[in-house]
Design a protein around this nucleic acid. Sequence first.
DNA 1: CGCTTTATGTCGAAC
DNA 2: GTTCGACGTAAAGCG
Lengths: 231, 231
Amino acid sequence: MRVVIARCAARYTGRLSAHLPLATRAIMVKADGSVLLHSDGGSYKPLNWMSPPCTLRSSSVTEEAAERGVTEVWVVQHDKTDDRLEIELHEVLSDTEHELGVDPGLIKDGVEAHLQELLAAQITILGDGHTLVRREYMTAIGPVDILAKDGGGASVAVEIKRRGEIDGVEQLTRYLELMNRDPLLAPVQGVFAAQEIKPQARVLAEDRGIRCVLLDYEAMKGDIDLSDRLF
Amino acid sequence: MRVVIARCAARYTGRLSAHLPLATRAIMVKADGSVLLHSDGGSYKPLNWMSPPCTLRSSSVTEEAAERGVTEVWVVQHDKTDDRLEIELHEVLSDTEHELGVDPGLIKDGVEAHLQELLAAQITILGDGHTLVRREYMTAIGPVDILAKDGGGASVAVEIKRRGEIDGVEQLTRYLELMNRDPLLAPVQGVFAAQEIKPQARVLAEDRGIRCVLLDYEAMKGDIDLSDRLF
DNA sequence: CGCTTTATGTCGAAC
DNA sequence: GTTCGACGTAAAGCG
């Protein structure tokens, strides 16, 4: 990875045309040739960039550009599309390069999938007598996270989120509406299960007769680890 | 902006829990306190990050951590949520800081809105005798980019894209279907206008009786500049 | 300030 | 390879 701190201007053409006026920025050139132009604020999104696969070439500085103070021109051309990023370097304040090697990448621990797995394995969290029918129960509009039956044999549809917000309740509502039209399933009780449920989401869910269940991820994981150890 | 190249591991908790195993990475600390952890590949998105407003604190290294080779621990805590990023530094290979100043930011030239503006101002690009009815003509399912009338007074609905692909044709098709049910508008002719039209999109559009018009952005802009100069 | 729509979205998984 | 939906979506526009 090469990191250049420089006064620079840039121009991008591709899905849109845009330009960056002259200012001091951090330019990151990754091993795969991709380029990121960062300012000293804002979000994780660069001001301008080129995604791989792409090729960086140093282009000649025209006389006109040299007069404007340009010392170097980089052209980053995407290999498959006509996206192109041109960077005019006016003054390089720092230019360093480091060997980083391959990154093992981010490992997500608490995703919905894992919560689903844990809840499926401990379905009685929903209440005594509950039994799992199946995970990812398919409906015409998508899969319901968990389909279960309560102690009395009635269907229970569970929507799982890490953070329970209104859109999760809406999603479950759509599933319930559809499933309750199926005489083999109806009546279907809705359960909104999450590690954290926003007050607005809770109000909406309960207003619609959907039960809210808070999931304790650490406790659930601990129980599984414990049962693993017992077997 | 501070750029640190270091062997490090990280852990994020917030909307999800995730961790990064030990590896060499580039750590960017921006003036507003936000932190980006970049690997030497992938896209502009960091492996892990903390968005502003947030605060970076150096935390004490526990004895246990020191034994694992940790020399420094950074805790980046979001100021408004419970999002938190912890970075364990094992070996700092480089640590530099530069004053970048405020960035003027990216200026976009060729967005769809601008194309719409230009086409509205030069509506005869669609053909002699065409007149503009209005931009952003509202329908029940959303706004049509441009509604015009042709030389014979028949309605023309225009969908504008920078790059014309199939989903744009689908979008226009939905509008046309709806508008053709309105006796005050029908019959409505569809025009798919874009700087670039993908072959598949062109075939689909023409199969549905939708006319394709290529827009020359530079020429359109030039004409406006020219007319500006004349007035 | 909260809500909606857009994005050079990116990313991963199913088909 | 393409399409689809989720995302720590983020960011801009608007009432």
